[in-house]
Write a protein that binds this DNA or RNA. Structure first.
Lengths: 270, 270
DNA sequence: GCCAGGCGACTGGTCAGACCAGTTGATCAC
DNA sequence: GTGATCAACTGGTCTGACCAGTCGCCTGGC
């Protein structure tokens, strides 16, 4: 739907015409914030490209004319955003990393771990993201993508049932190629982050299934699912690929979650 | 698709049987990191619920037995993650905010500004998330949800064309209710974060449209779109609601992005 | 000439102590 | 009772110090 009224998104109240120019509440801006903002701006604008170095902390103290603790708090903020990395003793100063998807993954991971959402929501969300990846990939893939995906599915089949580790790597690679074919890095990142979050959350339960000897079955079913999706991708049938993707996730996880979560997964099926 | 091999998700290498137990590289863990981790753990686990207070910094110094700068750097990290908020002079200590979508939208905004992805990807991603919210809501909504949504659409119509601010608030509320009806908080938070990131990213361009007097048209079209979606929700027709949602976003933003991004948005339409 | 080792000048990480401005709640004068 | 005052906090910032790690240079031995 969109429709944040143009130019009025979230509080930028400046310059409302016709009104008596109310004063905007002024809130104190901390020194470390301004320091962090200045540096972040230079990184995002490309003036400080990835791989370049920040001046040493004591040099920044001189340039910004603030205390070292202020500089350090600013650098800590930038570091926790993944924009820079610092290492003790490095005479070249902190390294600029540029924008990385890790922050996004961490934020998603926190969201997933919080009590706000449970395993059911997580898997449901993954059904959404995966399915939409397939939908896009069905429309935009190249022949080369299809070839690589087919090869990966073949490799997965080889690993059944004795190398679940390699199987899982091939599976992740399969998803990566699909996401790449869809051409939306953002969607791909989120899908990956949610994938990891699900893996973390359900690992213990699945380990039990593995001990019970169900791992081979799981892998075999997974290969079949991948092949079906692959066929839909080859036909360029986005909706079918999406539906198959949702079904695959549902079938894989439904046996391992609570009845309530199962209902949730069913609701997301079509 | 799923299929991270059960029990082998992401590097938890401990106790691989049969291998010669290689030593893991040990990397120094900073004091402020351990402090931040301990506090974050308590927040995520619910031991420190939103609204509760952290001890004062000088008290934390005693409890963790580290210097105040260490405590402050840890708090800075937590604050930049949106988990806490501190205010000078507050005798109650820093306030716990809990997990919020703000971090996510910041990360998304940075990503969209960077070369890694762009505005087109962001809007495309929003098409995906919004459409899927509708799909879930169509299936799971209650009569009460429908009533509230109808009322919100009515209110939006009232605000056209003279109160874009109130219009935008009603619009956001509409999306919130849809997300709530769908029952997936994770999806709702992500949709909200992407919504905000898009709003931030495109604000300047839309302000131009506003000056050109296109704002009223924009709002009118938006109301029509909302009504169509609402009808589909009422019919319980998830796929139709999803398609309408994608079309609405496409129509709203396609005129304001590059030709390349327009192609991307078209690809996400069906 | 070359390489190993050591030395020194850095780096970031941490701590201690101080001051400031802001907030709050009790106290006191009216 | 009400309003101003004040003292005891708070977080934000600065200074100066020390430590351990890292790197570059320089020197001594080969």
């Amino acid at each position: 739907m969109s429709a944040e009224s143009p130019g009025h998104g979230r509080g930028h109240a400046g310059g409302e015409p016709g009104k008596p120019a109310a004063f905007a509440p002024v809130r104190p801006v901390r020194a470390y914030q301004r320091v962090a903002e200045q540096i972040e701006e230079r990184i995002l604008s490309g003036a400080l490209p990835p791989g370049s170095r920040l001046p040493a902390e004591r040099e920044l103290v001189r340039q910004f004319d603030v205390g070292r603790s202020t500089i350090r708090e600013a650098l800590r903020v930038l570091q926790s955003s993944g924009l820079i990395r610092s290492r003790p003793g490095d005479p070249q100063g902190a390294e600029v990393l540029g924008v990385s998807p890790d922050t996004l993954s961490h934020a998603l991971g926190r969201l997933a771990r919080s009590h706000l959402s449970g395993l059911g929501e997580l898997i449901q969300f993954r059904m959404v993201l995966d399915a939409e990846s397939y939908r896009l990939a069905a429309r935009l893939h190249t022949e080369e993508d299809l070839r690589r995906l087919t090869e990966l599915a073949d490799r997965m089949e080889e690993y059944v049932p004795h190398d679940p580790h390699a199987f899982s790597r091939a599976d992740a690679e399969f998803h990566r190629v699909v996401a790449e074919a869809g051409g939306n890095a953002l969607l791909a990142l989120c899908a990956r982050a949610v994938h990891d979050a699900v893996a973390d959350a359900i690992e213990s339960k699945l380990a039990r299934a593995e001990r019970a000897g169900e791992a081979a079955d799981w892998m075999r079913r997974s290969v079949v699912h991948h092949r079906h999706v692959l066929a839909a991708l080859g036909d360029g049938d986005g909706p079918r690929a999406a539906r198959l993707g949702r079904e695959a996730l549902h079938d894989s996880y439904a046996p391992h979650v609570s009845e309530q979560d199962r209902a949730r997964l069913r609701a997301a099926l079509d």
